[in-house]
Design a protein around this nucleic acid. Structure first.
Length: 649
RNA sequence: GCCGGCGUAGCUCAGUGGUAGAGCAGCUGAUUCGUAAUCAGCAGGUCGGUGGUUCAAUCCCACUCGCCGGCUCCA
């Protein structure tokens, strides 16, 4: 090998070796194999992601050495490549089984992949079975993913011949001089930027999960395609573990737990998206609300209350009628005047602000309300407690001077973090949503408001992403999406800076200079809505609420009716100490009583038999099966008192 | 709203063109029992709703309501 044709490659661990400049990256597998625990799905060459089927010389090689980094499935990039290749295998299988199908797009997603097809009819479960079988065959056939570079014209011609109209649409949108890459695996070729794993055989374990309709390019004016979701892993064990996790998610579904634990219900007879809270759910809600009220009193908020309906004119003035109408219910006429059910609380709080002449010394004013609002949600989007039509926001509107905005946002962020932490959430994603198409106000106002939000997040060192065009019609917002124990994200907290409603309602305060100035409003909800927050909370705890939130904290279980009197004494002592206690006096075996207390996820069970009566003690068992042993009543009370005060999770 | 699936007892689910079953829960009785199910008996449903086909519909068809999985949209 002459020096001009060879180059030194450097691996991240510092080892170096010569390699042919035009060598296939797949050859690296053999050369370095012993030091890798798993097979790389791709390589990074001087930082550029490359498939194993590519040559080293596909990237410009200026120096006489080059950095080569293996990309494994265990990395996010590796998973994307792996799932993307899986999607191609599925597309090949579908194309072979249904030759008339047209291909749309097939990207990797978190935990898997999908591919959209235009088949003219939906896929049946039997279809999915057949497709999966065919995929197994394709994987076993060991087709190498071959990358090919085409001119735009050649690519258009190729997919024209294939009748792939969706691919043509994608290619046509590329710039004229752009090169187009396709990947070929055996008889199947797909438009694709790549990279891919080396061969179909690398995709070892996969499963097709569901088929569902999806609009072409996500636009409901476009035709509906048929989407198949699937997932894949390098080993059957990893796939099985993932499927098990899906089962776990199902087990923790708040709709199932809500029923099992008798917390709430949504019934036909009442209407979709309208929640009734059963006694146990309502009790937890009360505890959440008590905590919320206490914190807001401590943090300088004033509580206000407002009605559920208001004159149409109010909503006209606020802009809701122009910009929010599709989420509002039809007006009702009362004594010849139109009224609207409220979708938001802000106009009411604004009207409270306007009842006095305000001084700069009064600001900031913080009006808080657990305000129940009603929004029309399209029938297909309703989902348990997480998406409903009537819900209660833990809402507040802060009226402040321009020089107070940032300070107020910082305080809101602090209170948010504290609140979420109290409920066991310490992992969230933060987004700043900017001006949407349908919105009110000047560009300047929007820019100032957005800058204030970003600046506060930077001060707090909270990492965030921009969500373009996702703001509310009157202002930009910070959204916190809570990540639950399973890593799923739910949008709850929202903080919105608003220059526009104060203007529309002509709000003012008298400044130091004796002149009128316009206050700025901050709309904020920390938990978002009690319904959604509760839904997330149920799943987060899998229904096993911490002691301070558990609807029944202690269950007293006498073994025979010989202990009933003592059981009632014990229960009385616990109730007097402020605990929520139930006593199970049924003529049943203690095993059954324990089983039912376990199923209800009661934190503490107190078993009372002859021994306990004799020693005037309690046998304490936790719901995780842990046996605390015998305690005196006062020491048990002390123990659970501390647990409640600490709000231990 | 759109695409598909589903709707049988309070809950979880079987089932059939000839007007329905199981387990759990409920009720009654027996059992007095030590850390996740004691036994027996009883009762419980116009098979989501409306219309159609048929001698006959819970089953087939149409419409409708709701739920589930996605799409789109949001706290």
């Amino acid at each position: 090998m002459t020096p001009s044709k060879s180059i030194t490659i450097r691996f991240p661990d510092g080892t170096e070796r010569p390699f042919a400049k035009d060598g296939l990256l797949s050859d690296l597998l053999d050369q370095a194999k012993p030091s890798w625990k798993e097979t790389p799905v791709a390589f990074k060459i001087n930082g550029a992601l490359m498939g194993l089927g590519q040559r080293l010389s596909d990237v410009p090689l200026a120096a006489d050495s080059v950095a080569v980094e293996p990309v494994f499935f265990s990395s996010p990039e590796g998973q994307e490549i792996y799932r993307h290749s899986s999607a191609h295998i599925m597309a090949q299988a579908v194309k072979e089984l249904f030759p008339n199908v047209k291909l749309a797009i097939g990207p990797p997603i978190e935990d898997g992949f999908y591919y959209d097809f235009d088949l003219g009819r939906p896929f049946t479960p039997e279809d999915l079975e057949k497709i999966e079988q065919r995929m197994k065959k394709i994987a076993a056939d060991h087709h190498v993913f071959k990358r090919k570079v085409l001119s735009k014209q050649d690519a258009l011609r190729f997919f024209e011949e294939q009748g792939e109209t969706y691919k043509l649409e994608l290619i046509r949108e590329l710039p004229e001089d752009e090169i187009v890459t396709v990947y070929e695996q055996g008889p199947f070729t797909d438009l694709c930027r790549g990279p891919h794993v080396f061969s179909t055989r690398h995709v070892a374990a996969f499963k097709l999960l569901t088929a569902a309709g999806a609009y072409w390019r996500g636009d409901e004016r476009n035709p509906m395609l048929q989407r198949i979701y699937g997932t894949s892993f390098p080993t059957q064990e990893a796939l099985d573990a993932h499927l098990k996790r899906l089962e776990e998610i199902k087990r923790r579904d708040h709709r199932r737990l809500g029923k099992d634990l008798d917390l709430y219900n949504v019934m036909d007879e009442i209407g979709p998206g309208l929640v009734i809270w059963h006694p146990k759910g309502a009790l937890i809600r009360k505890l959440i609300e008590d905590f919320w009220r206490e914190q807001h009193l401590r943090h300088g908020y004033d509580f206000v209350c407002s009605p559920h309906i208001a004159r149409l004119d109010l909503w006209k003035r606020s802009g809701h009628l122009d910009f929010y109408r599709e989420n509002m219910y039809a007006p009702m006429s009362i004594d010849g005047i139109d009224y609207e059910l409220k979708p938001m609380n802000c106009p009411f709080h604004i009207m409270i602000y306007k009842t006095h002449l305000r001084s700069y010394r009064d600001l900031p004013l913080r009006f808080a309300e657990l305000g129940t609002v009603y929004r029309y949600e399209r029938s297909g989007v309703l989902h348990g407690l997480l998406r409903v039509r009537g819900f209660t926001q833990d809402d507040a509107h802060l009226f402040c001077r321009p020089d107070q905005i940032e300070q107020e946002i910082l305080k809101v962020l602090d209170l948010t973090v504290f609140t979420l932490k109290t409920f066991g959430f310490d992992d969230y994603e933060i987004y700043v949503s900017t001006r949407p198409e349908k919105s009110v106000g000047s560009t300047e106002h929007w820019e100032r408001a957005t800058a204030a939000l970003e600046s506060a997040l930077k001060t707090k060192d909270m990492a965030y992403r921009i969500d373009p065009g996702e703001g509310v019609f009157y202002g930009p917002k910070i959204d916190l999406k809570i990540k639950d124990v399973l890593g799923r994200a739910w949008q709850c907290t929202t903080v919105q800076v608003d220059f526009n409603l104060p203007e529309r309602f002509n709000l003012s305060y008298i400044g130091e200079d004796g002149k009128e100035h316009q206050p700025i409003m901050i709309h904020r909800a920390l938990m978002g809505s009690i319904e959604r927050f509760f839904g997330v909370l149920i799943e987060h705890y899998a229904g096993a609420f911490p002691l301070w939130l558990a609807p029944v904290q202690v269950k007293v279980l006498p073994i025979t009716d010989q202990q009933h009197a003592y059981a009632q004494d014990v229960a009385g002592a616990l109730i007097r100490a402020g605990f929520r206690v139930e006593t199970d006096l049924r003529n049943e075996k203690v095993g059954l009583k324990i089983r039912e207390a376990e199923k209800a996820k009661t934190p503490y069970m107190v078993v009372l038999g002859a021994r306990e009566v004799q020693g005037q003690k309690l046998s304490v068992r936790k719901r995780n099966g842990e046996n605390i042993g015998e305690l005196e009543i006062p020491s048990f009370i002390e123990r659970i008192n501390n647990e409640v005060l600490n709000k231990s999770t």
